[in-house]
Amino acid sequence: MSKVHVTTSINGDPTEFLCEPDSTLLDVLRDELGLTGSKEGCGTGDCGACTVTINGRVVCSCLVLGAEAEGAEIGTIEGMAEGDKLHPLQQKFIEHAALQCGICTPGILVAAKSLLEHNPDPTEEEARYWLAGNLCRCTGYDKIIRAVLATAADMREAS
């Protein structure tokens, strides 16, 4: 099995890597590129812990081949803050205690950011359905949904 050479962009950084043709993007991010913020909770697209964006659209990186990243723009949790400055969602998650163990948090943040880009004023129901693919076993989602809605309100006010 010969490796595939891939040229891509990750969080704005031009990136090249070699991967096995059957390696997933998640494997590449975690094992080849050291970007372990994306987590593997199931490997079947059912938990959302590996959520990243490809060309602006949220996907489960466990269900994308590394080879498919050729020419794409990939966004991961590691690219969400700008330097020291946390994204408003990240800040609000801390303030609202929207995480307990924190394993689902990177995936939820990436998905929530995408929600607010698509819909700056989501209802509670819209937020819950958008995030239905991101399992959290600790919180019962209450504080997560509150944090997302509070961030949306803040960001609308700021813009």
Partner: peptide, 21 residues
């Protein structure tokens, strides 16, 4: 009171190291 947790920033930025990391 409702202070901010010390591991919060690491956990919202993907830096926190879990078992498989």
């Amino acid at each position: 009171t409702r202070v901010q947790r010390p591991d919060g920033v690491d956990k919202v930025t993907g830096k926190a190291r879990f078992g498989a990391d």
